[in-house]
Design a protein around this nucleic acid. Structure first.
Lengths: 247, 247
DNA sequence: TCAAGTATACTTGTATACAAGTATTATAGG
DNA sequence: CCTATAATACTTGTATACAAGTATACTTGA
């Protein structure tokens, strides 16, 4: 069994989280990164002993992961579904869907406050790049989109975001960690920053066409494809000592 | 305290459900119907004694309801949010969003199997009307849309549906129960059937324009407004002996 | 009468215990 | 050697127990 003492999920983001949430985040990372392979069967008891907690927080975590569709709760054990290319594309479908919806609302709103907030986050992202802090960069990237989505005060759009956010977070986290390692992909980050700047500009000018363009800059097949590749490479690296099943 | 022995949620739909799910469904009905008023604070211990179960299934139920945004989990107690007109409109926003998305996929698929399934469900709905079985009608109505959404095999669109489905179910359940009581609203049901027939026709002919039309027939402001009114009347009736708070 | 501090009763989060059910394995019989 | 049955070990779901923290209310002092 992989040593439970080394965690993939950044600890700093779990400061005031309970055991259940903590374990959900860690399991999510392990599943999405491929450390826990698709098809594996997780047992509450085994996880409880591995994480050195009782079954209560484990059950909580499994419920969360099941609602995110990355595991499937069955009679005996939770089977890992994981993220293949299909699932990643599907998540981006949903993201595109809701951000388009949000845009339509935004054009009828006062977006001054929002664009200021977004600019602040963008500055943070630049700093994160400067100091090669992949985790911080990913965190701010997620926050950027969450800020946009949250700005229209739509509880059920926010509900959708709540459901895909954790998975997005993991994806971006892993992707950024991979890219930060390599010097030659530095331009990737400047491109991402550029895309986000266009995004803000679109919101400020309420230019629907520009909005669509910036959306597609962010979600293009290319980019998704890159994410998939990043993920694959990440899995290659991490799964050196991966668990096939419950040993 | 309202007697816990009389349940709002149809028992037949909970045949193989655990205590947690059962309680979630019942609480959801009570909240949406207004028996439990918005702003009320629910305590795990109190609910546990009221439902005569332990806190484990209660906790499970509350987590579910929180993910549906009809309650808000806070430090001390779960505060009831409920559904005002705004929230109902928002749920329909989401439903419109995903069904539109599904349609775009459907036009590129073989929909023979699907349209046969839908026809079957429609027949069931007619029978339900004939025998004035509001619960059965509501159940089939929900199943109708779930069948469409599920047909494109998109896990994350299905995830969204999973989240709004229970609330939709309650809304339709309450709305139909109200309408079944009154003879003069009988034409409502024939109109709903008609709408669903158009829906099927649109899918069969893959006529995008007709799809949109049938969508709007189902989700028109009028209809939503009626739903809200139904809900309001339902609340008026049910809340005769409603709980204001924890007594 | 009012303020401050303490005591109490209630809250959630986690751990443990128990019961009912299911897959697996081993054993007995053909 | 293969099949059927029974025993076993593991699974989840629920109940209970305990610990840490928070709001309320009361008491004590001025």
């Amino acid at each position: 069994m992989t040593d439970s003492r080394e965690f993939l999920f950044p600890a700093k983001m779990l400061s005031k989280a309970g055991a259940g949430e903590r374990i959900a985040c860690e399991l999510r990372m392990r599943i999405i990164s491929g450390v826990i392979e698709s098809g594996a069967v997780l047992s509450e008891n085994k996880l409880a002993t591995d994480f050195a907690v009782s079954r209560s927080p484990i059950r909580e975590a499994l419920k969360v992961l099941a609602s995110e569709k990355i595991i499937r709760l069955e009679r005996m054990g939770a089977v890992v579904v994981g993220l293949a290319e299909k699932e990643i594309q599907e998540i981006y479908d949903v993201r595109l869907l809701i951000e388009t919806f949000v845009f339509e609302r935004l054009v009828r709103m006062d977006t001054d406050q929002l664009s200021r907030e977004l600019s602040k986050i963008l500055e943070m992202m630049k700093i994160a790049i400067k100091y090669r802090d992949a985790d911080e960069f990913a965190l701010q990237d997620v926050l950027f989109h969450q800020t946009i989505i949250g700005s229209i005060n739509h509880s059920y759009i926010l509900m959708i975001w709540d459901n895909i956010k954790p998975v997005m977070e993991c994806l971006i986290l892993l992707s950024m960690r991979m890219r930060m390692r390599k010097e030659e992909e530095y331009e990737d980050f400047t491109r991402i920053i550029k895309n986000h700047e266009i995004y803000i500009e679109a919101i400020e000018s309420k230019d629907r066409a520009l909005m669509i363009e910036s959306l597609h800059l962010n979600f293009d097949d290319v980019q998704v494809q890159e994410k998939v590749e990043d993920l694959w490479r990440s899995q290659q690296i991490l799964s050196k000592g991966a668990v096939k099943n419950n040993d």
